[in-house]
Design a binder for these strands. Structure first.
Lengths: 193, 193
DNA sequence: GTCTATAGTGCGATAGAC
DNA sequence: GTCTATCGCACTATAGAC
């Protein structure tokens, strides 16, 4: 957070992410966005070239953060459980810094223009494929339970991807404690043995 | 599935759920919906009174299914782990029968009219509160790990609520096997002990 | 860099013929 | 029960003054 040092364009992106997250890309008009910034809709076009471009900028920026985070984790070649813990930390970290933008990514990626959408879908597929490989290696090495890797992947990703909703609603005084508990629940389960 | 015995109104609801789920309520026009049914937009209004009403009907119907399912489970007064397993089965069952409507509920509830939205939010709050009580009782009885119940609730609900995405994408030859694996992953975790 | 004014398009919904 | 025609409105985006 570079407090108060945002350019007008960054300010537009930040406010747009907040509004898009609250009501969805299609439900927010350029007039709504402008009003939130105390200017007229036409004035926005001195800083951005289209509504479309705002959405692409917000979403692809987040996509890149996940892509780079995953790359760093797989390059470290730690054991499987450590890599899963690092993935959980990666998600928590990105959610805490960009809860609104994560909401846009989750809910409005379908409304990206065709070019941006295809870039995002490629990023997401690559991300999921790396995640899948970690899980499969874990199963082979008997570190991960021998269930359908797709079901395991789906279950972990569901919680990680929707953490923004919960984090925005409840907040968290202690992000480290939240991370610790999510790691425990996802990896060890909720049932007492 | 009463094959081919749908009324025109039910046909509209079913098609609308499919399209809303694919692109979002605001991205689908009455002209789009009508075209999918091979009629003109104005003809829709002989069967429904507004676009708004279609969304309310789709979402509140699903909300009622969860409310009734939860009621049946808490009334049975089984032990905590059994109740959690029954909740997982409830979600899988509803997802399998109504994947599109679940997508509408998850993504478009914000676009309900004020009255329908307030009914849905009440249903959802009641549902979550019952779920929370089960978890808290489990912790007291040492059947559930002693972590923040909100984090446990969030983690379980995240997976259950987004199961429609994964189910629509991958399908499942064997719903019972899917249910068994989700129960194992959520309750026992993914890590080999 | 923001404004007013407006072009051009698509929206939900209604009226009335058949 | 479906159609054609249309109303009134909101939308994204541009032009041009200041």
């Amino acid at each position: 957070m570079l407090l108060d040092k945002l350019t007008r364009k960054q300010e537009i992106h930040q406010t747009a992410a907040k509004l898009f997250n609250e009501m969805g890309f299609n439900a927010i008009s350029m007039r709504d966005l402008a009003a939130e910034l105390d200017i007229k809709a036409s004035s926005l076009y001195n800083h951005i070239s289209s509504k479309d471009e705002i959405l692409s900028d917000i979403i692809l920026n987040i996509g890149s953060q996940f892509t780079e985070g995953m790359l760093a984790i797989v390059n470290q070649e730690e054991d499987v459980i450590t890599q899963l813990e690092q993935l959980i930390s990666l998600h928590v970290g990105i959610v805490v810094d960009n809860p609104d933008a994560i909401g846009c990514l989750n809910n409005d990626w379908k409304h990206l223009n065709p070019e941006s959408k295809s870039r995002l879908v490629k990023m997401r597929n690559d991300y999921e494929e790396q995640f899948r490989r970690i899980i499969k290696r874990g199963i082979v090495e008997s570190k991960i339970v021998n269930l359908n890797p797709e079901v395991i992947l789906f279950s972990l990703l569901s919680t990680l991807r929707s953490m923004n909703i919960w984090y925005s609603k409840k907040g968290s005084d202690d992000v480290n404690e939240l991370t610790r508990q999510v790691k425990s629940i996802l990896l060890e389960g909720v049932k007492v043995k």
